[in-house]
Design a protein around this nucleic acid. Structure first.
Lengths: 227, 227
DNA sequence: AAATAAACTATACAAACGTTCAACAGGCTT
DNA sequence: AAGCCTGTTGAACGTTTGTATAGTTTATTT
């Protein structure tokens, strides 16, 4: 999906440093999209200028206007690309909490982490920005994410795995807080632990801690907090 | 602490709509600080112009330069004010998880919520922005917050209340994820539940759900996730 | 090979930004 | 009353922003 999807040509011809004619395999349009995705993820929409994006993609700034109409149009195109990746990561499979059977649970997480590893550094940062920048699209993305998490909880609930007295109003949010914590605060995890919370081992270990807290809590004397 | 701290005069004289001489009780310097606090909280440092701040404070833009040197200098002054409020909210007292004795726990939370209620809407939004904008000061603020949370955990641990097999590396982060979830994502809670997660009743109810999950977990069959 | 369409570049423009500065008003000191 | 310091104003500056547009190169069509 990365190589050449242009309709008309195999690429754009230009001269390199040695005045040799060279063919860019990826069109300016595609390079703009990927550069925008990367830079928006790193610095946010308002933190990046069209000149930054054009420079990163090695094209002239006017090309954004030509292909995407405006900076906002480029954002929409990036959003569409992101959501397609999002659905491919979260949308289909049942990689979630509902089928956790001992070691199988860890193996599922591990293989899921492997499958998203390449795209994750940029994907996760774009996801973070999308949730934090207060746009309508960000709200729609959260809504979709919320549905996915609630779906997992509902399936657990249908199996009778969740205690009846657990607050069903806050439960999906508490799950989301735990799941998005690393997404939103990874810069501080990295400062504190020396590597990203999405480092393979830390990721695995966090899921163990996280699912253990959900399953059993962390306290020794149970039930001494509520009434 | 809000009224008049000027050294030289009780206020600045100016003419109102009816050409009556009126004394502003709060100096332009203070109004600038409060306006900046509010606007930075709502829209972020880069989302607010010095003209916006000056207009909100009913002063000329040049006054920022005079009192604070620059926009960045104004931010530092706001940061200092914020950190003093932060310490007064979190720093001293033991309003945290370590002395949770049934109903007393809820009463402690309730009174703490009451004591911060007035300032909370602006304070919490500024806190959020400080954590999310990637500044050195934000990192220092997180570090301080992390220390406070870990301190609570350490005291719980010293009392032998936490199971020995619980992952001590991730535990403070999981606490922070749960505590800051509403801080960072309140816009979506508001959209989903119709009111802020810092609404009194929702706040209380969240703490119940949150401490219950920590104490006992939420699942019916305990211990079926790890190994 | 000529013509048309698409990809792409370079420059110009108005708006908004943070900053600077000359001027002025009011209260305090002498 | 004169002088000075502080608080305050309003306009100007240079820079950067997103957008617009005219022109050039490359690719496709006829």
């Amino acid at each position: 999906m990365v190589v050449c999807s242009a309709n008309h040509s195999l690429g754009h011809t230009f001269l390199n440093d040695q005045n040799q004619s060279v063919v860019e395999l990826v069109s300016g349009r595609e390079r703009l999209l990927k550069s925008a995705l990367k830079l928006f993820a790193e610095r946010g929409f308002d933190g990046v200028s069209v000149r930054d994006i054009a420079a990163d993609a090695n094209v002239s700034g006017g090309l954004i206007k030509h292909h995407y109409g405006s900076k906002e149009g480029l954002r929409q195109a990036v959003d569409e690309y992101f959501i397609s990746r999002f659905e491919s990561f979260y949308g289909t499979g049942d990689q979630h909490v509902e089928n956790l059977q001992g070691g199988e649970f860890l193996a599922t997480i591990d293989s899921w982490v492997s499958s998203v590893a390449d795209e994750w550094p940029i994907f996760s940062r774009y996801f973070r920005r999308a949730l934090l920048e207060e746009t309508e699209w960000g709200a729609a993305l959260f809504k979709r994410y919320f549905e996915i998490v609630r779906g997992s909880i509902d399936r657990l609930d249908a199996q009778g795995r969740i205690r009846p007295d657990v607050d069903r109003l806050w439960l999906p949010f508490l799950f989301i807080f735990l799941e998005t914590g690393t997404l939103l605060l990874d810069q501080y995890i990295e400062k504190s632990l020396g590597r990203s919370g999405y480092d393979r081992d830390l990721w695995r270990r966090r899921y163990l801690a996280y699912s253990d807290m959900i399953a059993r809590g962390i306290m020794i004397e149970p039930g001494n907090t509520s009434s």
